[in-house]
Simulated assay, not measured.
Amino acid sequence: MEHEEKFYLVRSDVLPESIRKTMEVKELLERGTAHTIQEAVRKVDLSRSAYYKYKDAVFPFQAMVKEKIITLFFLLEDRAGTLSNLLKIASDKGCNVLTIHQTIPIQGRANVTLSLDASQINGTIDQLIHALKQLDFVKRVDILSSGAQ
């Protein structure tokens, strides 16, 4: 059975000290108050192992609200330049490509999954999807997940 990720919004005063200190380390590094992880963990009196245990699991609420990540699935005709044309449209709309996964083409078609940072998008997600669907080699576009508004 796969483990499903769950997310919670929790007041900081009820979090364990190691998680609160992990957030302090991340803030010190982000602000440039500390230049290395070693320096930051020393300043907040946290072990490096505790920091590495929690660093990818805790985020400030404001950072999560600002994220606009969208994951799109495409069924494309297998033609030269299709992926680069797809990426150009996304770039022209102000999206940053985070991940790309493309299957080996079978019977002249390939599946592509793109995760995009749409926090700087020019226009709306609907306009982006519409522009992508207009490409003659795009046979299908589905939104797999969206943190974008």
Rank of each mutant, 00 (worst) to 15 (best):
L28C: 02
F7A: 12
K139W: 09
F137A: 15
Y8D: 03
E17V: 09
V25Q: 00
L144G: 01
I89R: 04
Q134K: 10
L28V: 05
L116H: 09
E2A: 00
T36R: 00
A131W: 02
E77I: 11
D13V: 13
G32S: 04
Y52H: 07
L15P: 13
E77W: 12
N122A: 06
I100R: 10
T36M: 00
V44H: 00
E67W: 04
D13W: 15
I106G: 01
A57R: 03
I129C: 04
I143F: 04
V44R: 00
S146Y: 07
S145L: 03
L132Q: 08
D56N: 09
D45K: 10
T99N: 04
S91T: 14
Q62N: 08
E30Y: 12
P16F: 08
S49Q: 15
Q134G: 08
R79H: 14
L116Y: 13
I125G: 02
M1V: 06
E30M: 14
L9N: 10
D117R: 05
V141F: 08
L86V: 07
G32E: 09
S115P: 03
H3V: 02
A57D: 15
A63H: 11
G147E: 05
V112T: 08
I89P: 15
I106L: 07
H3M: 11
A118G: 09
H130P: 07
I143G: 03
P105R: 10
V41H: 01
V44D: 01
E39W: 00
L75K: 02
E24Y: 13
K139F: 11
A148L: 12
E4L: 07
C95L: 13
L98N: 04
Q62R: 12
A80F: 15
S115R: 06
D136H: 14
S145T: 02
I104W: 11
Q102F: 14
T22V: 09
Q149F: 03
E24R: 02
Q149A: 11
S18Y: 12
K133R: 07
V44P: 00
V58I: 03
I121V: 06
F73T: 11
T124N: 08
T33Q: 05
S91Q: 10
F137E: 11
D56V: 09
T99S: 12
R79E: 15
L72T: 03
T71F: 11
